[in-house]
Nucleic acid binder design. Sequence first.
DNA 1: GTCTATAGAGGGATAGAC
DNA 2: GTCTATCCCTCTATAGAC
Lengths: 228, 228
Amino acid sequence: MIETRRKLIDGTIATLRDKGIAGTSARAIAAAAEVNQALVFYHFGSVDALIDQACREGAAERVEFYRSRFSQVSSLRELLALGQELHAQEREAGNVTVLAQVLAGAQQDANLADAARHALLLWVAEIETALARLLVGSPIAELADPAGLARAVTAAFIGIELYEGVDSAGAQNALSALEQLTLLTEIVEDLGTVGRRAFLSRIRRTHPALRPLHDSGSSTTRSEIESD
Amino acid sequence: MIETRRKLIDGTIATLRDKGIAGTSARAIAAAAEVNQALVFYHFGSVDALIDQACREGAAERVEFYRSRFSQVSSLRELLALGQELHAQEREAGNVTVLAQVLAGAQQDANLADAARHALLLWVAEIETALARLLVGSPIAELADPAGLARAVTAAFIGIELYEGVDSAGAQNALSALEQLTLLTEIVEDLGTVGRRAFLSRIRRTHPALRPLHDSGSSTTRSEIESD
DNA sequence: GTCTATAGAGGGATAGAC
DNA sequence: GTCTATCCCTCTATAGAC
């Protein structure tokens, strides 16, 4: 029954959130899902395969949920605000925590690593698309690589999520600092014609190796993600 | 014997690195340390207590090792370069991975959370001290809070470390992006008198709420760390 | 301090009844 | 598809010999 499958996926997410990767056993999942423990193996074959699937489906669902929000963002500040809202909401639901736990388990498990990379790429692709759009025409575009920036932002959010679990005040400080960095980029963008020209010439003079970055080939395409 | 204690701490770090938090059992640790499994409980009482101790001592040792390097850094670019070197070296030794694994386990365990927070604060304090020194006199000091920035950087490094385990090329992109952000701050610092004045007035005009931040009380003191 | 042996709980996975 | 029962393994922790 498709209903049982759904319960097991949801139960896995709840278990990863509440007990961590080390406490996510077939018995614990079955208890959270309120189904028989043997059904884990009937439907998914193994606990690892279930965790893998829960990670993928959980991320896909949440990214889908936020997709239109990402597409409506019209400034870096708004993007950060969306990130903070997402951080707060998903923390309660536990979806980012789940990703962090799977990522921790994935360091020693090639199958989980596939799932974690795939789930992360879903988030990266949204952020990268938004960044690429927002940076068009900005002097920062001379310097910033949307692909790398999107990955750094995603990794930083995972790190802050983990940090929040042990020091929530410190994590708030970290988020404020990211906000300040966003202000820095806004100020650069608002420099006006004279300042902007000085900024650009400064880049060219001090960092001649930097060229417009649209040829790196590292941008994240949809086909790259949908390979399962 | 003090030698056995040492072996167990080292064995715990090696096990966390190679098998993750989910695979770090008394038996696995004892095998890595090449001592009898019962000695885990004789010397530390429980597996959790040993992980706790290994996390604290491992971080303290590595921070101590890098302390003079941090104190010699004289620019944000050098600080980032030190961070990249540290990332590469500690990845092999596994000390950052260990921190990430303990952090994952700490989400559901208050004792481990204490240890993880303590270990993270050791790194945060070094980075914060360096940042506070480097930002003196910089126009960025009007905007940047060294305490929050140090926490963001530390969390980002943990996140990138986990990301590297599932997508090393992507993690390199993320590190490059951080490098680009550093260049952005350098350029702002190099704006010259006219540009700098424009920058400062821009901050005051667009963000009047921002005052010099040295009164926030959130800076990390040594006494705050040495409370065990 | 270190060892062996073991108790007792919980884990993954399967067989077979329904 | 779902359930019970079970096998066999690994786990934490301790008792007791040395």
